[in-house]
Every structure is written in structure tokens, then in C-alpha cells.
């Protein structure tokens, strides 16, 4: 098992860096090329959500990403430290209800539509989003 950990300040500019790192490691881990766009978007959504949450609750605290190559899966965990007791439930799409910054739960809905396997762990001490995709067992491109 190989693990890469990355922590970054809650700045929007750093989300792109996190996306690039995750995509590079996914490729190296052996995630199929056709899935790399999904990895990039899902990791970006998770990091964007975390950045927005930190900017609202704890702008000085860092956000952490762990990227693992574990038994044929490429696993990404994004952890923040902003309180999140509950996830907003999906609602029927109503343009009038959508704000410019969008609902924070919308990013999670996008992740759920992209990642092969997703778990969301909200808590008063922060949210953890774990997602994974199939990868080559030996870490080489499939």
C-alpha cells in the first residue's frame, strides 16, 4: 500500500492543485484513462466543498487529502474540520431555490454520480468523504 497525503489552506486556488495531484496519482496507480476525468471532477468537488466549509467556519485550519493505492482500488479521502451534522437532502430541482453559490449538498450529489464507491461521514468535528475507483492491482496502468 502506498499513501500520499496532502494538506492545504482553505483557498480556492489550491483546489486546482489538489485535482492535479489526485489525477496524476490516479494515473500512476493504474486507474483507466476513461475514469480520470471522473476522478478529477469528484476530487475537485470534495475539495471545493471543504474549502467553502472552512471559509465559513474555520478559515485558518488546513484541509487534508489522503490518496491510497490499496488492493486494486484507488482511494481518496478528503477531510475537513468544519462542523457538518447533516447533509442536505436532495430536493426536486427548482430554479428559484438555487443560489448562485449553489447548495453545498449539490457537490456531494455530483460526487455520488461520478465515483464508483462513495462514503460520506459528517460529524460536528468535520466531514470526511471517501471515494474510490478500480485500479490496476500492481499499480501499473490497466
Amino acid at each position: 500500500m502506498a499513501t500520499v497525503e496532502l494538506t492545504f489552506s482553505a483557498l480556492p486556488a489550491h483546489v486546482r492543485t489538489a485535482r492535479l495531484v489526485a489525477t496524476a496519482i490516479a494515473r500512476r496507480t493504474g486507474v483507466e484513462e476513461s475514469l480520470l476525468d471522473e476522478v478529477r471532477l469528484a476530487v475537485g468537488e470534495a475539495c471545493s466543498r471543504a474549502v467553502e466549509a472552512h471559509r465559513a467556519h474555520c478559515p485558518g485550519e488546513p484541509i487534508r487529502i489522503e490518496l491510497r493505492d490499496d488492493s486494486g482500488r484507488f482511494e481518496v479521502t478528503v477531510s475537513d474540520q468544519a462542523p457538518s451534522d447533516e447533509i442536505k437532502q436532495e430536493q426536486p430541482l427548482d430554479l428559484g431555490m438555487l443560489s448562485d453559490s449553489f447548495m453545498s449538498g449539490f457537490g456531494i450529489a455530483v460526487i455520488a454520480g461520478l465515483a464508483d464507491d462513495v462514503e460520506v461521514f459528517p460529524s460536528p468535528k468535520g466531514m470526511r468523504i471517501r471515494m474510490s475507483w478500480p485500479a490496476a492491482a500492481n499499480g501499473r496502468p490497466a
Binding site: 475537485g44 471545493s48 448562485d100 449539490f106 455530483v110
Partner: peptide, 8 residues
């Protein structure tokens, strides 16, 4: 690249 922020 477009994410949910862009959609918003």
C-alpha cells in the same frame, strides 16, 4: 473543466 461552482 466545469464543477458545481460553475454550474451555480
Amino acid at each position: 473543466f466545469l464543477d458545481s461552482t460553475g454550474l451555480g
